[in-house]
């Protein structure tokens, strides 16, 4: 523990899952109400950074299944894909395509949601990439 705060350590154990769930909530809520991939991504990245402060940046790397760079590459790719999907259906780039029936819990799902999820991953990836690099120095 080398002198790190016990309070923070315990708090993070409870805060992190809450923050992550909240970030997903923001992401899902985003299309027509306040929220969205960007804010959701910020909250999720904040959760991981809190963990990095309580433990260490290296442990965040262990916690993540993939590197931050893979995260933002994937996010960028999803955003591009959301724009290209309608093109395969012979509609202009980035035209919103929607599933006919709303899904339970998620609500109406369409390409804008895919785009938002891409932004979500991109923001988490970029912020963690920058901050973890700075924190490790």
């Amino acid at each position: 523990m080398n002198g790190r705060s016990l309070l923070l350590n315990v708090a993070v154990r409870y805060l992190m899952p809450l923050l992550l769930i909240f970030s997903v909530f923001l992401l899902l809520r985003g299309h027509n109400e306040v929220g969205g991939g960007f804010v959701g991504g910020l909250v999720a990245a904040a959760a991981f950074m809190l963990y990095a402060i309580a433990h260490s940046p290296a442990e965040v790397h262990d916690l993540l299944p993939v590197s931050p760079r893979t995260l933002f590459t994937l996010g960028l790719f999803m955003a591009l894909l959301s724009g290209l999907l309608p093109v395969f259906g012979n509609q202009p780039f980035q035209t919103g395509l929607w599933l006919p029936e709303p899904l339970p819990v998620l609500g109406k799902v369409g390409t804008p949601f895919l785009f938002d999820t891409g932004v979500y991953l991109l923001v988490i990836g970029v912020i963690l990439h920058i901050l973890l690099t700075l924190a490790e120095d």
Partner: peptide
């Protein structure tokens, strides 16, 4: 759109081939 989308795709590929 092609002159915008092609560099974007290339950028993503370059990131993937880091």
């Amino acid at each position: 759109m092609a002159p915008i989308l092609l560099p974007l795709t290339s950028a993503i590929l370059a990131l993937a081939a880091w």
